[in-house]
Structures are given as C-alpha cells and as structure tokens.
Design a protein around this nucleic acid. Sequence first.
DNA 1: CACTTTAAGTGTAAGATATACACTTGTAAT
DNA 2: ATTACAAGTGTATATCTTACACTTAAAGTG
Lengths: 249, 249
Amino acid sequence: MTRYYKEYDEHLVALDCIIFGFDEGELKLLLLKRKFEPAKGEWSLMGGFLSKSESLDEAASRILNQLTGLSNIYMKQLSAFGEIDRDPGARTISVAYYALIKIDENDRLLAETHGAEWISITKLPALIFDHSQMVDKALEALRRRTSREPIGFELLPVKFTLPQLQSLYESICGEQLDKRNFRKQILETGLLVKLEEKDKESSKKGAFLYKFDHRKYNSYVEKGFLFQLKVRSGQIIKENNGNVLDIQE
Amino acid sequence: MTRYYKEYDEHLVALDCIIFGFDEGELKLLLLKRKFEPAKGEWSLMGGFLSKSESLDEAASRILNQLTGLSNIYMKQLSAFGEIDRDPGARTISVAYYALIKIDENDRLLAETHGAEWISITKLPALIFDHSQMVDKALEALRRRTSREPIGFELLPVKFTLPQLQSLYESICGEQLDKRNFRKQILETGLLVKLEEKDKESSKKGAFLYKFDHRKYNSYVEKGFLFQLKVRSGQIIKENNGNVLDIQE
DNA sequence: CACTTTAAGTGTAAGATATACACTTGTAAT
DNA sequence: ATTACAAGTGTATATCTTACACTTAAAGTG
C-alpha cells in the first residue's frame, strides 16, 4: 500500500468494553482490577490496544473474548474518547464499545481468573481515567436502544419468563412497570413464543418460559416495521459509593 | 508525561465532518472536491488529521473552522470508523462528527474559495472511501436527535417563520407534516417567541417571525422536562445519481 | 389433608394524545 | 376591484396510555 499523509502525528488507539450482564434481578457490569501501571490495582473497564492488522470492531471483539472467552456477542460502538490527558500513561484515543452478555451462558470462572467481577450498576466503584464517563454514556445508549430494538433478550438466557423480562426492563429504565401493561405490550409485538415448560425458580406456581422469535423479528425489520417499547429514560438511582454521579460528560 | 504502553502500534487518526445546512427548503451537505491524492478530484467530506496537541473535539472544530470560518457551531461526534482498508492512502482511523450550520450566517464565499459546495441530500454524488456510509449514519443520528432535542433551530436563522421550520422538519424526517398539527405541537412547547415582524420573502401576506427561547429551554432541561417531537424516522428518498443507497453499514 | 403463602396470570374503563380535515385572512400584483 | 397565493386557525374522532384488583397454581406447614 502506498503510504500518503506522511507528515501527520500517529496515536495509540485503545478499546474499552462496557460489558453488561443481568443476574439476580440486577443489571451488572463486568469490571476488573487493573494489572499494570499506571493506576495498577484500581477498578477499570476491560481494555486493550488496536493493532495495525485489525479493524476497530475486530479489536473490540478480540478484547471481549480475551476476558470472557465468548464470541459472537452483541456489541456496539459507543463513542470515541479523545481528551488529551484522559490516560496519564500516554496520549491515547479510546474507542468504547458496549457488549450485552447472557451471564448464564458465560463461564464465570474464566472471568474470575482474570480478576474480573460482575458489579451491580447501582453499586459501581470509582473507575480509572474517564471510564465512569464511558459507563454513564453506555447506560444512556442502552436505555435509548432498548426502546427502539429488542436487545433485552441479549441479556437473558434463550428461555426466560415474563417476570424476568420485566425485571430486566425495569433495571434498564430504572423504574417500576405495571405488570399487566408490560405483558400486554410485549406480547402484542408477537415476537415472543410461549413454551410448554415452566420455570419454578422463583415461585411455587412457576412461570411459563418464552423464547424470542429472532426469525420473525428479522422479517419485520426487513419489512420496515418498527419495534417500539414505551420505556422511559428514567435514571437508575446510584448508591453513593462511587464517583459515577460526579463525572459529567 | 511518563510514557507507558511502548509496545503498541500507533495510528493516523483522521476527523471527517458531515456539515448540514438548510437552504431553499432543502437539507444540504457541504461537500468538497478532494485536492490531494489519493482520490484527488472526487467528492469528499471535509476532513483532516488529529495532532498530538488537541482533543478529538478540538480537532473537529478546527477542521470545520478551516472550511467555513465559523466557530461555536453545534457539533456532535457521530462514530469512529476503523476498517483496515477504509482509506487507501494509509491505515487511518476516522472519527466522524456532524455539524449543524445556519447557512445564512455563513460566508458562502469562503466555502466556495475552498471548492466546497452545498448539495441537497436528495442529490448526493458518490463520495470517496466510506464517506457515504458516514453520511447515512449522520442522517439517522440527526433524525433521531431531532425528535429528542430542539436542534432544528441550529439550522435556521435566529429569526424564522413557522412555515420555514415545518419545511425543515419535513426535510429531516422525509415526510409531509400537517400544518395545523405541526403548529399546535411546536407552539405547545412554549419555546417559541412570536415577534412583531413578518417575513415577506415567500408570500404576499407574510409570515410572522419567531425566535427560539434558548434560555427557557435550558431551564426546562435542568428541571428534567423533555422535549419530544413526534417526528417519525421516515426515509429521505434519494434520487438515483449517487451510491448512497448501495453502501451498507 | 386443609390451610397458608407466594408469585403468576388476567381485562376493562377513563383519560390523554394523535390524527384528519377545510375555510378565512392579508397582501401584492394586475 | 379582482385575482392569486401562502399564512393562519379549531374541532371531532380514533387511538393509545394508564390505572387498577382479583383469581390461580403449587409448594410448604401444622
């Protein structure tokens, strides 16, 4: 490849992953304690550097895979972060991605070997650099996207109950939803398939399991029908043991 | 600054600006013919390279200013583009920004000296590299943001008429709106101030001029009130003289 | 085995919002 | 004085959103 643009500065390009999961009725992030300087030992997002031989999307997937062992994960670019002093280690541009993981299917041990932990978004610790900013922005993006696209299912096992789904939506949008209205709305989409089985984890009666009909959804998308949930962008109330509230974008 | 991360690749980081304007009842983009290799002479977005001494946002503003002479312009980061071969000149990460400009206030001559032209989004030519993809994505982002935030006013002169405003919204969302419903909705927000003056450009009767009440809007935002317009994300129909439709993200 | 406990599951009516729709007004040009 | 043109205005209907409380199924308990 002929090389033009010789006279311009080159930069380190990092990738940081905001990894969402849903477990025990709570929306969680996979965070780890940084293993190298600067800021060794502090809480951080999973990150890494872009190499010449990969695209941004590929690099983000690689980094997610290193931590979780997972591939083919729902991942979207959030934004590039480029303040001059954002990383005290060196001038670094960071491109943040967020990922949605089904914690059930995940090898929890693998995450633990890397010193990673699933932490509820209501109890986030202070994070290094501008990572808290990234998390705030990712939460906003997740909320907005949730109302436009049925991405909640990326966070649940393949088979899930309606109470689970409702609880997930409540965690994402940060407010209580009416059970009957929620069920009516979500079933009206025609995208859920009711199974014969029940899940008896959380009640004696048991709740019917459902599957999301990806096939039908894709055909709707092609036809231009829109998925729309009336999920308001209420704030998730954060407990006061982190700096998430302090850092403004 | 101590330099960590020595072992990682460095990359050129470019910025590309999707510059929106509204003129003659049409949503337009400021495009220019590229003055250097590769792809010299082809239509392109305004772009430039990030230097060590500036943040991404600063660089984007600098580049916009170089072309238009304008500063303090509404500008948002769209996304980073990082396919390996996206720029045949060299491996380059590009961070795209979109800007909203009041064409009236703009020195049209300055744009012309740079060989730039305002081109209707319904008549876009083929663009270099992945710039058409960037434009498509910027249009989507503009439509979505328009329904959440009163950014339309960034594209109009300080004083504007309701028919102008309606025409702008129609251009953005790509469909006709009902005059009475539109006026009712937009006036209900309480964010428009009716002036005594009339604009007689487009009718004998003349249409009253209005101003957007930025102050009131900011106080609403602080109080958490939301601006919401029911602007559907209809597609803007593109005429068949560009490749905008062909490139998929 | 009857009783208690727990969460799952179900429908409707009232209020709010969105939509469709047609005539009058003001002014310049002829 | 007449015509032509876009600006400006209100209401009724349909649709969507919201609020709300009891019944059901099954396991655990005495």
